[in-house]
């Protein structure tokens, strides 16, 4: 290939890349950098003026009771949602993998919530949570329990929001776990069965190690999803009651778009970016290790 045609190949390659790269620069790279700049400024919403304030907004967040409560609410939410959706999806995926009948019907039932939005998931659940005529408290009353006022009790609202989220998220994890289960070597399973290993031992010693990369992947993605949750919370509780479900994205939304403190919202976005970036990097390196590790 002559020097000239290599140059022309490079030129046309960049032409093909130009639209995507240009749009990503305009709508992702530049805004991300601008968020960082904005986080060091107090932004005046009407004049569009930017007053440099250095680290003040980060200091204010560090000292803020509200922000600490929001961080705690997010951690609590993640602590409820992640184990719930990972363990729940593992159980369902293993059963789906084994079932000889109606597999695709069952699978569809579990996957439907993946296709609908968090807002719709919340709308489906809001009446189930109704304290006086909701179905959830009716079920509880059948076993003699007086159900709580799910969405207006600060002790129970986090659980209600988490339950809705787990319902919506398990299907997402099931997709990945079923794909991984389909790759588990049949010979290994059969050999263990011949050796007289029972189902639980086969699961523990053969299935689980083979799908551990997928388990790790869905766990991390569940953590990231939990940190980015917003729609279902906005519909179900508006971050309340008493801030009990006011997760980080909700706090960002409130500061930026309800209280017009856009500089503050940018600082919160930077913090969220760092948290999610750290989780993603850990995921990246552990996944590499798992891939390279002998099975």
């Amino acid at each position: 290939m002559s020097e000239n045609s290599a140059d022309s190949a490079t030129r046309s390659a960049w032409l093909f890349l130009a639209p995507a790269l240009f749009l990503m620069f305009i709508f992702t790279v530049a805004p991300a950098l601008f968020s960082l700049i904005l986080s060091f400024h107090d932004f005046k919403p009407f004049s569009f003026a930017m007053v440099p304030v250095g680290l003040d907004q980060y200091m204010e967040l560090a000292a803020s009771e509200d922000y600490r409560a929001s961080l705690m609410a997010t951690l609590q939410f993640a602590a409820l949602v992640v184990p719930g959706s990972v363990i729940g999806s593992l159980a369902v995926a293993v059963l789906l993998d084994q079932t000889p009948f109606f597999r695709s019907i069952f699978r569809t039932i579990f996957l439907i919530p993946v296709g609908i939005s968090p807002a719709m998931a919340a709308m489906l659940w809001v009446f189930l949570f109704n304290p006086t005529s909701g179905f959830l408290n009716y079920l509880l009353s059948m076993v003699g329990i007086v159900g709580p006022a799910w969405l207006s009790d600060p002790d129970w609202a986090p659980l209600a929001v988490s339950l809705t989220t787990v319902w919506k998220e398990v299907g997402f994890n099931i997709i990945f776990l079923m794909a991984a289960l389909a790759q588990v070597p049949v010979e290994l399973q059969e050999a263990a069965w011949m050796d007289g290993a029972n189902a639980l031992r086969r699961f523990w010693h053969i299935t689980l190690p083979s799908i551990s990369p997928a388990m790790f992947f869905v766990t991390v993605v569940s953590v990231i999803h939990a940190f980015e949750s917003f729609g279902q919370i906005h519909i179900l509780t508006r971050g309340g009651p008493a801030g009990s479900t006011g997760v980080l994205v909700y706090q960002l939304f409130r500061d930026g778009f309800e209280n017009s403190r856009l500089g503050m919202a940018a600082a919160e976005a930077v913090i969220l970016f760092i948290i999610i970036g750290a989780v993603t990097l850990v995921q990246f390196f552990v996944a590499r290790y798992l891939k390279g590790a002998p099975q």
């Binding site: 992702t28 805004p31 968020s35 904005l38 990231i224 999610i276 993603t280």
Partner: peptide
């Protein structure tokens, strides 16, 4: 460019929302 695209995969949309809104 390939590395850039992979990096873009990991950017959470919240970081862009305030500037894009402005």
């Amino acid at each position: 460019v390939l590395g850039f695209v992979v990096a873009m995969l990991m950017v959470p949309s919240e970081i862009t929302i305030v500037p894009n809104y402005l």
